[in-house]
Structures are given as C-alpha cells and as structure tokens.
Simulated scan of single mutants.
Amino acid sequence: MCSAAFAAAVAFGAVAGPALLFDLPKTPERLQPLAGPALAPVLFAARVVSVLLRFRTAGQPSQPGRTSPVS
C-alpha cells in the first residue's frame, strides 16, 4: 500500500502540479487540478490490485528439511 500511495502522490503531483506552479492557458489550468485527484485513486487501486494478484500467483515457497512419506 505504501508503493501505491507513493505512485498516486507522484501522479497527482505530475498532473496537477504544473497548473499550480505555472501560468498556463485557462483550460489546462482549470482541468489539471481536477484530473490529478481523479487519477490518483485509480492509480492507487490499480497498484494495490496488481500487487495482490502477483502475491496470489507467487505460490507457496518450498519447505526445506521436510521428507516425503514414501522415503
């Protein structure tokens, strides 16, 4: 979740930041601060889901030291 929060914060800053820092034309200056908060939760959710899916498909690690019952 920390990497998802970081990715969402970076995306928010990359999208909304220029409108807050620079003088832009009216349309981008009005839309970028709205697009940043809209993109951040989507990116957060996508990152959390991708990590959970990767964790689920990783499988169980082997258990060294165990012998099979037939040996």
Rank of each mutant, 00 (worst) to 15 (best):
S62D: 14
R66V: 09
R66Q: 10
T27Y: 13
L39K: 05
S62C: 06
G36W: 01
R54H: 01
P61M: 05
A35P: 04
P41V: 06
V51C: 02
P33S: 04
A35Q: 11
V49D: 01
G65I: 08
L20P: 00
V48R: 14
F44L: 15
F55K: 12
A40D: 06
K26R: 15
P41M: 11
P41H: 10
R54L: 05
G59D: 12
P37V: 07
S62V: 13
L20Q: 07
D23A: 14
A46D: 05
L24M: 14
A46G: 11
R56V: 07
P41E: 05
R54S: 06
E29G: 14
F44Y: 15
R56M: 07
V48Y: 06
P33N: 03
L43I: 15
S50N: 09
T57W: 10
L31I: 15
A35V: 14
V42A: 15
Q32M: 15
R56F: 07
D23V: 12
F55V: 02
L53V: 09
T67W: 11
L24T: 06
P18Y: 01
A38S: 11
P28I: 00
P41Q: 07
L31K: 13
A46E: 08
R54Q: 02
L24V: 10
P61E: 12
G59S: 12
G36V: 03
G59P: 12
R30M: 12
V49F: 04
R30C: 00
P25K: 04
A58M: 12
Q32P: 04
G59I: 10
G36N: 05
L34I: 07
L53Q: 10
P64Y: 02
P18W: 03
P25S: 07
A40G: 04
